[in-house]
Design a protein around this nucleic acid. Structure first.
Length: 657
RNA sequence: GCUGAUUUAGCUUAGUUGGUAGAGCAUCGGCAUCGUAAACCGAAGGUCGGAGGUUCGACUCCUCUAAUCAGCACCA
């Protein structure tokens, strides 16, 4: 029998006979380790404890303590859920089942009616019964033919089996039911003590919308009760962070179904936040060499035919309006063609490059109804858009400049939880994109090269590019954990070609510029939603709709002092307000706190006498007495520094030089 | 768009064997003028998302439709 060599995490090497299992290997170290082992990991791949190993490599024994141990627990729970689902519904079909850092899921398909949320409790009870009475898991290996026979009548399982590259297919026998292994299951189910079935939702088979939709059952599981409870609590808290909830509570925005889905209204409070962001980013861009413009939201459809949007982006566009004189007008889905018109309006010299055109450009996209979500996904949005026209040899430099600007802006907003994603076209589905292999390859490698040169980490994703070029996307997560793109920088060789753009070079000849599309603070809608969730509605002073709430202890006696103070603050553009409603002071303070006003000022007898204010900052329990001038100094400094800690400044900007 | 669920006063929500709706907060009116998270009393406010149907009678049952939510697919 041949020998296999294994290397342990501590560097030790050991040899075993081929066909040895992880359990055997663990036993050779210690019996207690073998007992604790829930799986093994060979060369980075999880394996069942009992699986006969056919090749050696780096080996790790997985116990409940590790990340992978948790994954095994969840996979076990998923496989158990599959078992009870099969017992409960004899005609059920099973699609993909999976476990990850968020929990686990099992895809099901039932002829009559899909599994409903009401049935989750019953399924969970049956899972518990098996864990209690019959927790052992037997391994059964079937040949491919036997396996296909076993899952007869279930096309999804048959498809999965047919794609397995082996004639030795592992099934788990749980309580007398065979389930195809779609991951690694622990030796026993007795560790599944703390789990919860969370919800059901549709999910396309194999993730393709052309395929039938299955019913996905979501759940989660932990080794420790405290961890499960913490997780459930975190899910609850995520809902409290939801920008739609906060937006309603703080009266920031709303969507009226009678007016239209995905068409948000900004209430004065939300509008103030948006206006502050807009002023900030406009000033920032003007200071960085951008020229701000205004261009029409409507244009002749021909413009979007020439740009390629009509061919490649029509699904996301509103249908054109046919006018009396047969002209077709289109609501723009993107601003790039508009800025191209600005570029083309004059003959451009190489001396003007890079030419940076920016606009808070309103666009309309016909988003699928199911995609709409508060301010995160809407049908009318205003993008912090910018297009730089550069000579080919300026691409790298301009890319870096944009990235530096972006990180500078992120610092001002305290955004530090994001990842870079290089988004390429899908090589298998090229008809979605402009057809020019050479340009795609060039643009993609240029982007990658720039990122590598800057030494920044990124992930690469095929099929995420814009139809006209590859992009660098900045990916963030919403409160509910969904990934979304915030900022983006896109390289475009196509539109300059399509619109026959040129500039006059030093040599007096015409040259083709390259376009860089970029959005720094995303759309006003999405960015505001992101900030609401990030700050949990407690906006830093410079962004807060109301910065100061002044509360007189008694309106009759101290109201005048409060109003005079308010005038003084308002005169220097501090967003201040006197709450002179005839309510008890405690009530007014509570109101200011629940609305997360950064500064609450109480004025009464002492303050009037000493010409001072009693200041309570949001998040602090104690109030401080200070003179009015001291307070003005403090809040002005707070606003001008974007409410940042002085020592935190400029850290990430330095990363991009 | 798809699967499932939901839709009751401005907001949050109660209301199952079908007999035309209760509450808290907010609002308004009184009363109180009060030192750091909700004083007290009273009033007004909904025909139960919309349309159609079954029924003597529907918020409660059925059909269609719209929107919202979870997720999938799609995306700033």
């Amino acid at each position: 029998m041949s020998k296999l060599s294994f290397e342990f995490p501590d560097g030790n090497q050991k040899e075993f006979d081929a066909g040895v299992s992880v359990e055997d290997i663990a036993k050779s170290i210690s019996v207690s380790l073998a007992k604790k082992a829930v799986a093994g990991k060979v060369d980075g791949e999880l394996v069942d404890v009992f699986a006969p190993l056919q090749k050696g490599g780096k080996i790790e024994i997985i116990t409940s303590e590790s990340e992978e141990g948790l994954q095994v627990l969840r996979q076990s729970a998923a496989q158990l859920l599959e078992t009870v689902a099969k017992k409960q519904f004899h005609d059920i079909k099973i699609g993909e089942i999976s476990a990850d850092e968020d929990g686990f899921y099992v895809d099901t398909d039932k002829a009559e009616r899909q599994v409903s949320a009401d049935e989750l409790d019953e399924l969970a009870n049956q899972m518990k019964r098996i864990i209690k009475n019959d927790a052992s898991v037997k391994r059964v290996y079937l040949s491919k033919d036997e396996a296909l026979k076993e899952v007869d009548g279930d096309p999804y399982q048959a498809k999965i089996i047919s794609e397995i590259d082996s004639d030795n297919i592992l099934f788990y026998d749980i309580a007398g039911v065979l389930t195809l292994a779609q991951g690694v299951v622990a030796p026993s189910l007795k560790n599944i003590k703390h789990f919860k079935l969370l919800s059901v939702a549709g999910a396309y088979w194999e993730g393709k919308s052309s395929n039938p939709m299955l019913q996905r059952i979501y759940g989660t599981a932990f080794y420790k009760e405290a961890e499960l409870e913490a997780d459930l609590k975190a899910r609850q808290e995520a809902k409290e962070r939801d920008h739609r909830v906060i937006g309603n509570n703080l009266d920031l925005f709303f969507v009226d179904p009678k007016v239209g889905a995905g068409l948000p209204y900004w209430m004065p409070n939300g509008a103030t936040i948006r206006r502050t962001i807009e002023r900030y980013i406009t000033d920032k861009e003007l200071a960085n060499g951008y020229q701000h413009v205004y261009t029409p939201v409507l244009a002749n459809l021909d413009l979007y035919k020439q740009s390629g949007h009509w061919d490649h982006y029509r699904e996301d566009m509103f249908p054109p309006m046919e006018m009396d004189d047969d002209e077709m007008l289109e609501l723009r889905p993107m601003n790039c063609p508009s800025h191209i018109q600005i570029y083309k309006h004059h003959i451009r010299s190489y001396r003007e490059l890079p030419l940076r055109i920016a606009e808070l450009g309103m666009m309309h996209r016909y988003e699928k109804s199911g995609a709409l979500s508060g301010l995160q996904r809407v049908r009318e949005m205003t993008l912090n858009d910018g297009h730089t026209f550069v000579a080919p040899d300026q691409i790298q430099d301009e890319f870096k400049k944009i990235l530096k600007l972006m990180m500078d802006v992120y610092d001002d907003f305290d955004i530090d939880n994001y990842t870079f994603r290089l988004s390429y076209r899908d090589p298998k589905n090229t008809e979605k994109y402009f057809d020019d292999d050479e340009m795609w390859n060039k643009a993609q490698s240029m982007l990658k090269g720039a990122m590598d040169e800057l030494g920044l980490d990124y992930v690469e994703a095929e099929g995420e590019a814009a139809f006209y070029g590859p992009k660098l996307d900045v990916q963030t997560k919403t409160a509910l954990g969904n990934e979304e793109t915030l900022s983006t920088i896109q390289l475009d060789f196509m539109l300059p070609e399509r619109f026959d753009l040129h500039y006059v070079g030093e040599d007096g000849k015409e040259h083709r510029p390259v376009m860089i599309h970029r959005g720094i603070v995303s759309t006003m809608e999405r960015f505001t939603a992101y900030l609401i969730e990030m700050y949990k509605g407690a906006f830093p002073t410079w962004l807060a709709p109301k910065q100061v709430e002044i509360i007189p202890v008694s309106d009759e006696k101290y109201g005048d002092y409060a109003r005079k103070l308010n005038e003084k603050l308002s005169a220097i553009k501090i967003r201040s307000h006197v709450d002179d409603r005839s309510e008890k002071m405690g009530y007014l303070i509570r109101d200011a706190q629940t609305h997360k006003v950064p500064y609450t000022i109480v004025v009464g007898e002492n303050e009037v006498k000493n010409n001072t204010v009693s200041v309570r900052k949001y998040g602090e329990d104690n109030s401080r007495d200070m003179s009015i001038d001291e307070f003005v100094m403090e809040i002005l400094k707070d606003i001008s520094s974007y409410s940042r800690d002085a020592n935190k400044e400029k850290e990430s900007v330095d990363k991009v030089r």
